[in-house]
Amino acid sequence: MNQELFFEQVWDLTREIPKGRVTSYGAIAKAIGAPNLSRMVARAIGACGSAQPPVPYYRVISSNGLLSGDPSSTNKRQQLLEREGIEVENLKVQNLKKVFWDPLNDLE
């Protein structure tokens, strides 16, 4: 698969994550049919800065609930999540089971 197309698929699915919910890199990888490419999903999320429409990158976290990525951006990600009502403590999403969005269960 072409990297540009892969990134677009990741961004499109990330835009579907409901406000106040999070998902994981691995869940996105599975949903787009590339279950072994969660690191590539992380790369796509890291490259979404100028994508239009904007990608709510901060809603994608590690499967263990941790905010990952560049340490300089984790504070901003935490603020954005908390603005949506998601509780984050020590860079970890609280009540993960409650706020986790599984794209495979929620796709049409």
Rank of each mutant, 00 (worst) to 15 (best):
M1E: 14
N2H: 14
N2F: 15
N2C: 11
Q3I: 13
Q3T: 14
E4Y: 13
E4W: 09
E4D: 09
F6C: 04
F6V: 04
F6W: 11
F6L: 09
F7I: 00
F7R: 02
F7E: 04
F7Q: 01
Q9C: 02
Q9G: 02
Q9L: 03
V10S: 02
W11R: 00
D12M: 12
D12A: 15
L13K: 00
T14E: 01
T14G: 02
R15S: 03
R15L: 04
R15V: 05
E16D: 03
E16M: 08
I17D: 02
I17K: 05
P18I: 15
K19N: 04
G20V: 10
G20D: 07
R21A: 11
T23A: 00
T23Q: 01
G26H: 07
G26Q: 09
A27G: 00
A27T: 03
I28Y: 07
A29F: 10
A29G: 07
K30L: 09
K30R: 13
A31N: 09
G33W: 06
P35K: 01
S38T: 06
S38D: 03
S38A: 11
R39K: 09
A42F: 15
A42L: 12
A44L: 10
I45G: 02
G46V: 14
G46L: 14
G46A: 15
A47I: 09
A47N: 13
C48A: 15
G49D: 10
A51T: 06
P53V: 11
P53W: 05
P53L: 07
P54S: 13
P54G: 09
Y57G: 14
Y58D: 14
Y58R: 11
S62W: 00
S63C: 03
S63N: 01
N64V: 08
L66C: 04
L67T: 02
L67C: 04
L67K: 01
G69Q: 12
G69P: 03
D70L: 15
S72N: 05
T74D: 06
T74F: 12
N75E: 13
N75P: 00
K76Y: 12
R77F: 12
Q78R: 12
Q78A: 14
Q78M: 15
Q79N: 02
L80M: 08
L80I: 08
L81V: 12
R83H: 10
R83S: 09
E84Y: 12
E84T: 06
I86W: 02
I86Q: 00
I86R: 00
E87Y: 14
E89Q: 13
E89M: 13
N90D: 10
N90K: 13
L91I: 10
K92S: 08
Q94R: 00
Q94K: 00
Q94H: 00
N95Q: 08
N95C: 14
N95W: 10
N95H: 11
K97I: 08
K98H: 09
F100H: 03
F100Q: 01
F100L: 05
W101C: 04
W101F: 11
D102R: 03
D102N: 13
P103K: 05
L104S: 08
N105E: 10
N105R: 07
L107V: 02
